[in-house]
Nucleic acid binder design. Sequence first.
DNA 1: CCTGTTATCGCAATCGATTGCAATACGTGG
DNA 2: CCACGTATTGCAATCGATTGCGATAACAGG
Lengths: 339, 339
Amino acid sequence: MAATLKDVAKKVGIHPATVSRALNPNTAHLVNAATVTKVRKAAAALNYVPNPMAAGLRTSRSHTIGVVIPDLNNPVFPGMVRGIQDTLSRTGYTPLLVNTDNDPESEAHVIAALSARRVDGFILATARRDHPLLVELSEKFPIVLINRVSESVQLPSVSADDLHGIRLAVEHLYGLGHRSIAHIAGPAWSSSGHERSQAFSKAMRDHELVPARRPVAVTAWNIESAREAALRLLADNPTVTAIVSANDQIALGAIAAAKTLKRRCPRDLSVVGYNDMPLMDLVDPPLTTVRVPQHDIGAESARLMLSLLVEEGSTPIKQVRLTPELIIRSSTAPPRGTS
Amino acid sequence: MAATLKDVAKKVGIHPATVSRALNPNTAHLVNAATVTKVRKAAAALNYVPNPMAAGLRTSRSHTIGVVIPDLNNPVFPGMVRGIQDTLSRTGYTPLLVNTDNDPESEAHVIAALSARRVDGFILATARRDHPLLVELSEKFPIVLINRVSESVQLPSVSADDLHGIRLAVEHLYGLGHRSIAHIAGPAWSSSGHERSQAFSKAMRDHELVPARRPVAVTAWNIESAREAALRLLADNPTVTAIVSANDQIALGAIAAAKTLKRRCPRDLSVVGYNDMPLMDLVDPPLTTVRVPQHDIGAESARLMLSLLVEEGSTPIKQVRLTPELIIRSSTAPPRGTS
DNA sequence: CCTGTTATCGCAATCGATTGCAATACGTGG
DNA sequence: CCACGTATTGCAATCGATTGCGATAACAGG
């Protein structure tokens, strides 16, 4: 059905090998300029499209990249995925997208499936702190970590500068007059959650503030778990006037918790989110949050991956940090009793 | 590096062809049961993983499905995509996901790219009414339409029963006492928008109501465009007390418009959305909307595609309609002046 | 004991592109 | 006029799995 190299060769009257070389930018210099144009024309006329399976079989490179994310339904990820898709597709690579639902076992499954598909590399957005898979995987494949850095192995990564982002949140609250600021951290197994928690401690110390007596973390990255955590937090520390959340879902959960305790946000409790995922400007109240450049993170990770694929090992490991930005909306206000 | 059929064959002491047959469930009956088990064991020992490029080259089937959606950032789509992924992956197929940004030219591009990748079929979520590509594409590939049905060609499709869904919305408003109900339609080029608009007219007629004088449609599926449309609508028809929107974004835009006109929702204006995308329970006010089973739509479309792939043409064209459900929240209320 | 099945398995071609190597032609300097 | 370098192209092997066809053996019936 579809035209092959041989068809093009026959039409021009030359050997398929020459056609292959003529059509490949890397080898086109090996072939006479005149024949190159003839080949190009013939290929276009037959609308020849190279068969990636044949090429892949021979070269053992599939021009696909495995993209592993926890869950596409979590609104933070589509932005990053778009960033990846947009820049990968412009170079002939195709992302293969899978979800893990934050389940290590499921992650092992999908990674095995992607290896079976012979992906050329992995972009991983699954941020567990204890991640044994990572080491052995990194020996077999180029890897770029997204939204986190690795503790065990030194690996290329792209993420937001959480230290800076969390500091922005704390400074904002401090500036409003808050002194009793608490943090609701991500799950214990989460690497990004851990990092932001550390960042919070540091920012508080820098302002000579002390965090809430008992640190609180969610058990899963979802609103309901966050609501429970916030309830615990507010019960333990009734004087808390502001909360810095490890992500937007947690902030939403905190606001929900406040509501059930008849504390209104922001009048009685200020809440800051993290990520600025879609629709955060339309929730009630519009969420003050730290915007991380989701699309850029994705795009940059793809670019990093592409460079790994050509530079062939010799590259020094790059860890990119993109700077987030504070978006002030209506979930934060001066604490009660402030003029 | 990786083990091949030949390696397994050598280990068992038989010909690669036999190994191939033994490992393929469709041909395993051609080979002695005892050797099958020996082959299986050897394959496991060498942890042999078949090379999909080699297989694909020979069989010219890639076991990949092109999934074309307008924009992953639109929160309605991730749910459907998950549905597709979840059911495809369980059968060894891999979805290749691309975005069109609702641009026909970009759509042509991505479809060409997917054809180049030799996908086995397409699941299309791009719902233009005038869609010339569709016809020629449907001659070369199995196609499943998602979230729409085709007007020009008869094609397999999976979508919500919009007639029913819109009727639920109208009935709900009617039941609350509304009589002056308007519709804000999707873009003129959109097939799903058109269908819902028709459904609205029908539902109104069935209740012996007349729609707003001048029909209003957005120019794009986004909040800002919807806000403008709603502004126009409310200027033309100040007596309108309720709006049925073609999707949730439009509903959010309508609420925003009401806000700028100092009309509060739901006190002065009731608004109902469509789709029930994530976070619609947390916006201000929580949105009454028609929930379409996003995950199920995706899953069903994948199942349909798989059946097309095996049944090989003989199937009667199936058009699946899933029934939506009204989710009543706080953006709807009885009109002013009702006790 | 012979013939016709049936069950198993091997052979070899094939899918389409890539690439190391060889071959040819053409020029140039000596 | 010759040796040698360069530019261009052809040849053929190769990647790994699949599959039509033929070969062999075992087995049943007559």
